[in-house]
Write a protein that binds this DNA or RNA. Sequence first.
DNA 1: ATCGTTAACTTCATCGATCAACTGGAGGTT
DNA 2: AACCTCCAGTTGATCGATGAAGTTAACGAT
Lengths: 351, 351
Amino acid sequence: MGEKLTAVTMKTLANKLGVSVTTVSNAYSKPDRLSSELRDQILATAKDLGYCGPSAAGRALRSGKTDVCGFLFRGGISSAFSDPYSIMLLAGLSEAVEVYGASVLLLRAPAADEEDNQVVRRAAIDALVVGPTYGQESEIEALRQRGVRIVRTEPSPEDDWVTINDAKAGRLVGKHLAQLGHHRIAVIAPADTDEDVDVFDYSPDRLDSRITPQPWETERVRGLWEKLPGAHLQVALARDCTRQAGREAAAAVLDVQDRPTAIVALSDVLALGVWDAASERGLTPGRDISIVGFDDIPDAAFLGMTSVHQPITDKGRLIGRLAMDPDYPQRQITLPVELIVRSSTGPAPKN
Amino acid sequence: MGEKLTAVTMKTLANKLGVSVTTVSNAYSKPDRLSSELRDQILATAKDLGYCGPSAAGRALRSGKTDVCGFLFRGGISSAFSDPYSIMLLAGLSEAVEVYGASVLLLRAPAADEEDNQVVRRAAIDALVVGPTYGQESEIEALRQRGVRIVRTEPSPEDDWVTINDAKAGRLVGKHLAQLGHHRIAVIAPADTDEDVDVFDYSPDRLDSRITPQPWETERVRGLWEKLPGAHLQVALARDCTRQAGREAAAAVLDVQDRPTAIVALSDVLALGVWDAASERGLTPGRDISIVGFDDIPDAAFLGMTSVHQPITDKGRLIGRLAMDPDYPQRQITLPVELIVRSSTGPAPKN
DNA sequence: ATCGTTAACTTCATCGATCAACTGGAGGTT
DNA sequence: AACCTCCAGTTGATCGATGAAGTTAACGAT
């Protein structure tokens, strides 16, 4: 009987007060278009009736604004949350987006073999942040046509982006290791595969053929290679981008006769795993073996990891700003990188 | 001239194919209501015209479903991302929510002193996950009236929840420390304040008056107290729930004449800070001083922290299920806790 | 006295999709 | 032959709000 048969809408308020629906709408979104007395009266009545402001759906449909910024994860959500890099990026992004009164919607990108996922197409968003390249460009294209602004973390001709110079990051590491006299070097790269750890001698083509080529990965290795002419460069593929996977991959290159004198992990999470693997074998990082990471996440810095710093949180903030503000002047941005030398690297052992 | 004046909608498709809009709609959401030939034809045409599926706004308005689950953060987003607990919870939540084809929307709860934030009211969500209690119940109430399902991480008469028995968690720790012979104990509690570290002798009332009473905090201390009759229990308030804050708070209780023999941090992140503070003073956890945390996060487990384990990711998953499935039978769930004894606790030193 | 302007509202059309109810025909029943 | 059912669609109303374009009345300027 006394059930709530109809929801409270602007119409309810309008009828009760004898004003038009538009006026009620204005009370919320354009306060200067009506007398403040009436506005107060409307808001008071709203509170009385339990009306909690304009419905997002109606508003979104009519005005086309949702005040939501999508964040597209590659692979599973779990992978995103297991890497401090993603988390810090997300933190910066949220912070910036919040300033515009918007929120962040986490979207899972379908894996390459999944059928097109409706989750992304169905998202009600004003802008979409796309992480490291991910096959399904057609979905993104469709969203773009619908007026969704796209912001990427890698250069792209059509969209806005905020990135770092990954090749330079690689070169910084290469130069550092060259100066320390390292010649036998292993690279740990994430591969997103279930297979066993795979180790092979580096060449650009071979790397591309083994992993879904992610620009940030190939660029980093390329830069590294550039500054290490004549070095013996191996690549070990890690199952995914986690500490444990880094540990396993490192094990594969450490447990051989002529182990490398330096190990470069393409991200700090992997580098932490390398550290674990080294410690377990009684090797002291920086003395018996050099370890370098990328991204300079706090956990690694804390241990004394030599790493290429990038302003991750600032990157997130900038991305958020680009996403929410179509008038922000600079729309394709490269942030600086810097090698932070700590205790995990040292001269190559002389044996 | 050739600008895109009108977006491609279902109407566009319907006109082009000479069918009704409803049929186009059905092609997407009710495939069994039309012949598969026609459906294929519609989808093909959609691809041709660059139509990317039903607009979320229209769909949300008419059907009332958004396929979005809100997650309300207390305090700033930054605090949420700085605690592995939140992140693991979020990971589990996302994973579960995804199964229902939905996504997670991150919402920042306004601080107590901010004016009501529209972000929350404007959110287009089917369900809302509310973390540790947060003042603005009226906003939540309004959403509830609009049909948004509320799921909490703490017991609540009106809503669904998934929680742990915090008092029991406290008792487990208390019992453990009692058995080890500890009598001088300090508790590190997060306070969300900018003031200096504050240390005082424990009593339920005093604790409540110092911090915004969060049930999980007060319950944990209460349980602890229960199993430590006659012990000298101090409380030190940490600025917030970060490692650094834990370190500072621990410093305040360590740098005194009769320092406690055991320190209980109300969360593992804080406990890590305590560990740092102890190490800096040359104290070995488990021998010179015992340290206990809660939540059993990987970083702490890795170091050997004694902690009360709770299935955080599963908690997130369950919360997601409750949020997305109104028919899930059990709607108020208490998950088990378990004390994991590691190297950070040991017998109280005899001096 | 007339015109222009502004404040404070109202009217009307519309955003894009979905639901409830209905239709025409093919096929099966009794 | 009359009746029922199911399939494959159609029609029309509607979700809740907002932008564009009026409409008043009051006021000041000329």
